[in-house]
Amino acid sequence: MSKDEQLKALYQQRKEQVKAPHSTRQLLLTKARAEQIKPGYNLWNWTLGVSLCAALLVLFQFVGITHQQLRPEYEVIQVHRLNEEKQPGELAALVAEQTRVEHADNYARYIQGQQILTAHHKRLARLVNTEDGWGLQTCDKELVLLTAQLVDQLRNNRRLEEQLKKGDEVEIAFDVDGRIVSIKAAPGLHC
């Protein structure tokens, strides 16, 4: 045993010989009991109660969240997969066929769109200037007036030639509904 340990052991032995005064304990407890807060208003009990309620609330919420997370959000599951039984060659043919059908559909839609712009019939006319703007004098001696808006739109779509001037013979193309699709110069043609 080291010297320090010996001193410590002797100190503890010495302390064990001593007893704290019992009268102090009695006095202290009597005073403490007199001052003790009534159980109904015991702050400790209230704190404990509130803490336990809060803990339970957090626990229930946690359990609820966990349950909700575990519950699936779907009821029917559809599994889509490539038919594994098909051979690679057949699979390629199937894909090619699907692509072809898609292309055919797209092409049909494109043709349909083009037909809208394709001329249904054409008429010859002479370009004249009127007070209201441009006009087209047809072979039937009818005057077709072109609004400035239509002229701009045709020019923007490059369906009206830039170099056209008064007196030029032009060919007017109409669509199915009789709307002007384009105006082109027709120098060799006359009514």
Binding site: R14, V18, A20, Q36
Partner: peptide, 27 residues
């Protein structure tokens, strides 16, 4: 706990735990 509640039994436990040490020191 004693600070919050003022419970005499808690003070009694504290006394039992520390009274001898303190008294021996003072003595």
């Amino acid at each position: 706990r004693y600070v919050l509640s003022g419970d005499a039994s808690l003070l009694a436990k504290l006394y039992d735990n520390c009274a001898r040490d303190l008294y021996h020191f003072l003595l």
